[in-house]
Design a protein around this nucleic acid. Structure first.
Lengths: 363, 363
DNA sequence: CCTGCATTCTGCAACGATGTAGCTGAGAGA
DNA sequence: TCTCTCAGCTACATCGTTGCAGAATGCAGG
C-alpha cells in the first residue's frame, strides 16, 4: 500500500537499483537520471522504509541510551540534549530505563535494545567493569557515561569530578567556611561519583590546611529526600557545621529545604553547594551554588564518539576517555564572600547587594 | 553471524516455519516438537531479529511519544512512566522532541517516527485539530495527550483542568485569599490548558461571589523564569494580591522564588499554588501546594488506549476521551488555613515551631 | 582497430522473519 | 471400507531495501 522503490523506479523509467543509488548518493549517476528519480520520488511522495533498510544494511541509525530513571532531572536534561545532538547527525535515540538493577542493566546490554540500535550510551550503576566486559555480546560500539566505571577497555565520557569538587570546596573555604559537611558519600568511598567528589573535597581541605573530619561525611540516597534526612541526622548528631556540600543538586536542594524548615538560614548560618547545575538550581530560594559539569559538552562528545565508532572513523584501539570542562555557578546559597551574620533586617524587599569581595584562595 | 531461525530449525530437525510457529505460540504443535525447538533455541542462544519481524509483520511493538522538550520535568516524568507501563505490555517507547514548532510537529506526525512505531502518543502544542486531521497520513492509531486539542475525531487522554483549577482556587479562597493572581494565561484565553484552568479559576470565584479582575491575570511562558518575571511585572504594576496561582509548577516555583527574593513572605504575605505536582514541588521552600493531575492514571490509560487501538481491541468508531482524576496536594506555600501575619521572630537558628494557630477565615 | 578504463546503469540474491497454501496421516462417521 | 476432517507439519513466496557482479557505453592510448 505504501509507495516503494519499485513504484518510483517504474515511474522514473529506471531500475530499482538506480533509485537506491540515487538515495544513497552514489557517485556515478548522470544529473539527468538523478533528476528523473528525484521527480518521481516527489511526485509519488515516496519515503524510504527504514525497517527494510535496517534489515538489509544492518544499520538502524538509532543510538540506545541506558539510564536508571528518565524522570531524574539530570538524566532528563541529558537525554534531551543527546537527542538534539544525535538528530543533527541524523540519528535517533532510544531510551531504556534500568532502575539501577543488575538484571535490567544486563538485559539492556544484551537484549533487544542493542539489537535495535547501532551503539549504546550506557550509564552503569551496578555492573562493574568486568561484569560489563563479560556481558557484552557482539561488537557494537558502547560508550560509558558517568564515573561508576573507569576502565581502559571502554570508551568513556565523564565529568571532572575530582577537580570540580575540589574547586567547589575551595570556594566554600574561601568564603570562610571551615566545617563543611558532605552529603551523599561515606568516608571510605574511593570510587564512583561519591568517591571521586569526596577525593576532590579532601584535596581542597588539605590544600587549605583544614583537617578532614569523617563525622561530617553523611551517606544518603542521591535524592531530595536523602538530602533532607541527611541534614536531619547531622543536626540530631549535634555536629556543628557551617556549610553543606551536596554531592548532587537533588541532595543539596533537599538539604537546603530541611535547613530552612528548621530555621537555619542559608547562607548566613550555613552555606549550601550542589553539583550538576540542573535547571531548578537557579530557581530555588536562595538559588543554589553548584557545579555546572559541562553537560552540553558531555552530550556532544559522547554522541560524537559513539557515532565515530559506529561509522568507523574513530580508530583508537583501546578506550577513549573524555573529560568535559566544568564551571562553578556561584549563587545565593553560597556566595563568594561570607555574608556577615547580620541581625535580620526585617522585611525590606530590596535586593541585597552582591559583595564584590574576591577571596581567591588556591593551589 | 547471528543465530537465525534457520539455524534453530536445522538444529531441532524441523522446518523454519515450525520454529516460527513455536515462537508465535501457534496452537497446534505437539509438545514434543515444541520442546525440541525450545531446546535448540536455548542451546544456540537464538534471539529473534526484531527488524526482520517488523519488516515482515508490519508491527514494531514501539510506541512513539511526541513532546515539546523532554527536559521539562512534567514530560520527563510522564515519559518515564509511559515507558514502564508500555514495557509491561511488551512495548517500547521512542521519544521525539518537537520544540513546540509547527514544522517539527508536522514531521513527527508524518515522518519516520510514525513509520517506526505502531502508534503515536502526541502532545500537540501548535497544530490545531484540523491541521492534525489533515496532516495525519495512513491509519496508524494516534492518541492525543493534553488539552490543546479537544475534538471528537481523536482519541484523547487528559486531566480535569477546569475541575482541578476550580478546586485549587476554592482552596485559596477558603484560606481567606481574595486577590488571587493567575500566572500563565491571558484574560481572554478560552482553550488549551491556560484557557481551561482559567475557566476553573473563574468558576470558583463566581461560586464564592468574588469579582474577577483581569488585572490579576498575567501571561507568561510556562517556565520558571516566566513565573519569576510575571511576579516582577505584577509587583511593578502595583496590583495588590494575596495569592499567586501558577498554572503549572514551574511557573509557581519561579514566582515563589521571585517573591521570596523580594522579601515577600510565602505564605504569610502571599500564598502560592501550582499545578502538576512535579517531584520538586515537595522539596521547595516552602513546599508547594499544587494539583496532582493523576499522572499515573494518565500514563496507564493512554498506553492502554493506544495499544488497544493497535491490537484492534478498542473498537469505538469516534474518539475515546479519558479524563484522569486529580487531587489537591496541600503544602506549605498555601496551607489550609491562613497563617496569621506574625512579626518576624529574629535570628534563632532553632527550628521554628509550626504555628498551630487555626485562623480559619472563610466563606 | 583493439584494449583498457572510467562511467552509468541493471539484475539477482540476499537480510531474517511471517503468511498462505498445501501435504500427510490418524481417527471419526457413514 | 471409504470418505472426510483436522491436527501437525513443510515449502515457497514475500516484506522493501542494499551488496555484488556485471553489462553497456564512451573515450583515450597504443
Amino acid at each position: 500500500m505504501a509507495v516503494t522503490m519499485n513504484d518510483v523506479a517504474r515511474a522514473a523509467g529506471v531500475s530499482l537499483k538506480t533509485v537506491s543509488n540515487v538515495l544513497n548518493n552514489y557517485e556515478f549517476i548522470r544529473p539527468a537520471t538523478r533528476q528523473k528519480v528525484l521527480d518521481a520520488i516527489a511526485e509519488l511522495g515516496y519515503e524510504a522504509n527504514l525497517t527494510a533498510r535496517s534489515l538489509r544494511s544492518g544499520k538502524s541509525r538509532m543510538l540506545g541510551l541506558v539510564v536508571s530513571d528518565l524522570s531524574v532531572p539530570y538524566y532528563a536534561e541529558l537525554a534531551s540534549r543527546l537527542m538534539t545532538v544525535a538528530a543533527a547527525r541524523d540519528y535517533r535515540v532510544l531510551v531504556e530505563q534500568s532502575a539501577a538493577t543488575r538484571a535490567n542493566e544486563l538485559t539492556a546490554l544484551q537484549g533487544s535494545l542493542s539489537q535495535l540500535t547501532d551503539g549504546l550510551l550506557f550509564t552503569p550503576l551496578v555492573l562493574d567493569a568486568d561484569a560489563m566486559a563479560a556481558a557484552r555480546r557482539g561488537t557494537k560500539p558502547l560508550v560509558m557515561l558517568g564515573e561508576h566505571i573507569d576502565d581502559p577497555r571502554f570508551d568513556q565520557v565523564t565529568m571532572k569530578n575530582v577537580g570540580a569538587a575540589k574547586a567547589m570546596t575551595a570556594h566554600l573555604l574561601a568564603g570562610g567556611r571551615r566545617r563543611i559537611a558532605v552529603i551523599g558519600a561515606s568516608p571510605g568511598d574511593r570510587a564512583g561519583s561519591p568517591g571521586l567528589r569526596l577525593a576532590g573535597y579532601r584535596a581542597a581541605l588539605a590544600a587549605a590546611g583544614v583537617d578532614f573530619d569523617p563525622a561530617l561525611i553523611v551517606p544518603a540516597e542521591w535524592r531530595r529526600d536523602g538530602g533532607a534526612s541527611a541534614v536531619a541526622r547531622l543536626l540530631e548528631g549535634g555536629q556543628p557545621f557551617d556549610a553543606v556540600f551536596g554531592l548532587n543538586d537533588a541532595l543539596a536542594l533537599g538539604a537546603m529545604h530541611e535547613l530552612v524548615l528548621r530555621g537555619i538560614r542559608v547562607p548566613e548560618d550555613a552555606a549550601v553547594a550542589g553539583f550538576d547545575d540542573i535547571d531548578e538550581a537557579r530557581f530555588s530560594s536562595p538559588s543554589l551554588t553548584t557545579v555546572a559539569p559541562g553537560m552540553n559538552e558531555i552530550a556532544e562528545r559522547c554522541v560524537q564518539l559513539l557515532i565515530d565508532r559506529i561509522e568507523g572513523s574513530e580508530k583508537a584501539a583501546s578506550g577513549v576517555h573524555v573529560e568535559a570542562e566544568f564551571e562553578l555557578r556561584i549563587r545565593g546559597s553560597a556566595p563568594a564572600a561570607r555574608v556577615s551574620q547580620l541581625p535580620q533586617t526585617g522585611t525590606s524587599p530590596t535586593p541585597t547587594p552582591t559583595p564584590a569581595a574576591e577571596g581567591k584562595v588556591d593551589p
